[in-house]
Amino acid sequence: MNFLFKLSRSIDAMNLRIGVCVKWLVLVMAALSAGNALLRKLFDIGSNALLETQWYMFAAVFLLYAGLTLCEQGHVRVDLFYRKYSEKQKCVLDILGALLCILPLSGLVIYLGFDVFWTAFADGEMSSNSGGLLIWPARLLVPLGFILLALQAASEIIKNVAKLKTLLSAAPQAKA
């Protein structure tokens, strides 16, 4: 169990650290996009590579943030019933959700996405736009993002199981 706690803590820390770097892309891509508009208008400078870099960064932001967003409960729920659940019920729901919703999806996307990345990498596939970028970095982001998501889901399971255990062991004592 101790090992699992350690694992969960290091996953959380890793996603946090990745987030600390990735969030700067928000500022960078806004600056790039605004700068691109100015350069194009004022100096007739511009390229499709600059345009494509923007969406590469956008993709990096939301995919590489997937783990951290899950960790910080950033995904919205329909809380019609959810807010009435007890702490125990919430734990059970989050364990089942991570097991049944996130892990199968992530597994599928990682497996298939890596294959797609590999083809693009091996072929040296380029964007078909004039002066466009290599495709594989963008393709790689898909499995990478879902790996981070799947790891975080595992961490959430560990944390919720632990919480459930304490809740369950606390309950009879409270009665007594």
């Binding site: 400078i45 345009l51 736009n129 004039s130 002066g131």
Partner: peptide
């Protein structure tokens, strides 16, 4: 077009 000096903007 790019070779002729234009800026292709996708």
């Amino acid at each position: 077009m790019a070779k002729l000096g234009a800026l292709p903007q996708q």
